[in-house]
Design a protein around this nucleic acid. Sequence first.
DNA 1: TCAGGACAGAACGCAACCGTATCGTCCCTA
DNA 2: TAGGGACGATACGGTTGCGTTCTGTCCTGA
Lengths: 213, 213
Amino acid sequence: MSDAEKPRQARRAPAGAAVLQKDVTLAIQAAVFTELAKHGYGRLSIEAVARRAGVGKTAIYRRWSSKLQMVLEVVSAAAVKVMPVPDTGTLSGDIRELLDAGAQAMRHPLASQIVPDLLAEASRNPDIAETLENALRETQQGVSAVMIKNAVERGDLPADTDAELAFDMVFGPLYWRVAVTRSPVSNDYLDRLAEGATAALIGAHGPAAHSGG
Amino acid sequence: MSDAEKPRQARRAPAGAAVLQKDVTLAIQAAVFTELAKHGYGRLSIEAVARRAGVGKTAIYRRWSSKLQMVLEVVSAAAVKVMPVPDTGTLSGDIRELLDAGAQAMRHPLASQIVPDLLAEASRNPDIAETLENALRETQQGVSAVMIKNAVERGDLPADTDAELAFDMVFGPLYWRVAVTRSPVSNDYLDRLAEGATAALIGAHGPAAHSGG
DNA sequence: TCAGGACAGAACGCAACCGTATCGTCCCTA
DNA sequence: TAGGGACGATACGGTTGCGTTCTGTCCTGA
């Protein structure tokens, strides 16, 4: 006997209303994250999301017109968790706090699976690329700029310090370790990384440097 | 008129033999790369590879039993391009050369799309993870270990320098820039990055007093 | 109160792929 | 030189997902 032959009325439980229901939206959002982590954007299917969320496909199409739009909106909404600007009084302290916050974010299994996946997808999809770019800019790039500015005002760094390079040298190794080598990120490692990054920022303006180019 | 309506016999051109033909294999390998770059591993289909390579699906199934095995083998074969150990006589020179080689590799559009995609997939697929891990170890990790050893022997670095951290601090920012922020990687940027990484390695061991005195 | 509309569920036709099988051709090795 | 087998092509049934449409239920705002 197939599913289609079962009595129909018996299986229906809840119902709807004349307004989009928040709990349905929440269930869909959660399902999107889980499915993204489990299968990636490429293999994400509306049907699987609906199945996991326990909703009908219509509930999804009523909210978003496509898989892309759905993912972009759900991801954007989640990305607005603003990162606080560290202010420990020293450059190395600030960097250490920034690294800690970054490591904590990347330790989330959802994030550590979904973010690399979407980044890979971004190379084929300009909309995804733009969304991620904005998320990155809004959350972290400004933070490190402020951090550099504070350090400059304290006299810890020269005024022409390259904030962009600083940003790369703080988050690059961390992301590399989490996403590429998949090695564990211990507090001790973060200590050493912070130390190295601090030295890099200070030392990059050594003897031959200062081209400013 | 669609292709499917053309007379069937007229389109057959080549034929086969009693041995796997190298040019067919090469065509398939190239198609795998192109399809991987275009659609990612998740959306890679055997049929599309066969179509692009201009071969029948049988030619593929005769060589590999599954999409996973096919991709792993093709990618592994391509990853054996060994990176020469830089030996410029100075640590910063070696780092600069390593960065240059890395940047050149990542500038290839195929690589810069396929590698992040497979890395994302690796978080769901242990076989892919292992393959990439091996490729990374064989090509670059040993290189940077030798580089550090040379620097230690020259007296440029203390004997207890953390090679792992060094590795992360050299390639991390580069990969971050290419794969995450998608910013251009100029020679000038590589110069500054090499400078910073060098300072990080030297300065990570003790108070960052260097450069000036 | 009451009607509009969101709801879950089911089914639709269509398309893409899966992995396998079969065909006739023709190359390559023994 | 003989024949085994790789070759491209095609077809197969099965699966999955697409986006749409319909149904009957029942919530909710006006």
